[in-house]
């Protein structure tokens, strides 16, 4: 079976992991347009080459990042998301009055 190296748990069968999609830069939710936000949430590039993706180790519910070549399916590197996300992201949705 294909083996993936989990940054927390070490090498594990690929069947222990769940794919979580491409890592994309998040637009500022307070200032971006609905189209930009929808593009971020729903669309992916799906290109051939080395991409950075979210993966989760099921048994520990641990999310991490992996660099993988989408052509050869070779996993080049896996790492903790703290390498990319150095500070907490908070969402402050402006309160809006609902008019009926």
């Amino acid at each position: 079976m294909k083996i993936m190296p989990c940054p927390l748990n070490g090498p594990r069968n690929i069947s222990e992991f769940t794919y979580g999609g491409e890592l994309n830069a998040m637009p500022d939710s307070a200032t971006c347009t609905d189209a930009e936000w929808a593009d971020y949430v729903f669309n992916c590039e799906n290109r051939v080459g080395v991409v950075t993706e979210w993966w989760m180790h099921n048994a520990s519910s641990y999310w991490f990042l992996a660099e993988r070549h989408t052509g050869s399916d070779e996993i080049l590197r896996t790492f903790d998301p703290k390498e990319v996300f150095t500070q907490r992201v908070d969402f402050h949705a402006p309160a809006q009055e609902v008019r009926s």
Binding site: M1, N9, R12, N13, S15, E16, H57, N58, A59, S60
Partner: peptide, 25 residues
């Protein structure tokens, strides 16, 4: 799939993995 023999998994080790196709600690 994880090697749980004493030389690879000594006393005090913890593995979060899959056994008989379910998640186990």
């Amino acid at each position: 799939g994880v090697d749980l023999r004493a030389e690879a998994f000594p006393v005090g080790s913890v593995a979060q993995t899959s056994a008989a196709r379910i998640n186990v600690i």
